[in-house]
Amino acid sequence: MSAPRVFVVENTLAKMAREPGGRNAEAAVKAAELRIDGVKDVSLASLIEKAEQLGVLAAEARASGESEAFGPVYDLSNAIYGVAGAFGLKGLAEAAFSLCDLTDHFRSGEEANWPAIDVHVDGIRLLATLGEKATAAGADSVLDGLRKVRARVMPAN
C-alpha cells in the first residue's frame, strides 16, 4: 500500500435513512423488541441443546489432552453467553462468560483444571434447563460456587 491517505467518504447509510418514510426510532426499537420476543421460545430451547453439546465437547477436549481442543468449548460457551444475554438470563450468561475465561486461560497453555470445567458445564446445563424458571436465589447460589472456583483457578492479578 502506498503513502497514508485521509479522505472523505460518502455516508450512503445516512442518505438512505434520511429519505422520507421509514419509522420513528422509538417505534422501530419497540418493533425490534417484539420480533425478538417472538423467537424467545426457540432460542431458549436452543440453549438447552447447546448446554448438552457443551458437555460433549468438554469430554472430547479432556480425552484429546490438546490445548486446541478448548477452542470449540470456548466458542460454544461464547454463543451461550450471547443468546442468554439477549433474553436477560443473567445467571446463565455469567456462568457461560466464566467458562469462556477458564477455557481461554487453559488454551493459552495453562494446565487444565478439569473439576473447574466440569462444575461450570454442570452449572450451565442446570441454568439452561431452568431457563426463566431459575429463581434469582437459585441462580445466585450456583454463581457463587462458580465464582469461587474461578477465583481459585484464576486468581486476580
Partner: peptide
C-alpha cells in the same frame, strides 16, 4: 425518523440463534 427500508444490510454471526436474533432485530 430512520428509513432503513432500502438499505442493504449484511448481518454476520457464527451462531445460528445469534444470527436469528440479529435478523429479527
Amino acid at each position: 425518523r430512520v428509513n432503513l427500508s432500502t438499505a442493504e444490510v449484511l448481518l454476520a454471526c457464527g451462531d445460528p440463534e445469534g444470527l436469528n436474533i440479529m435478523g429479527e432485530m
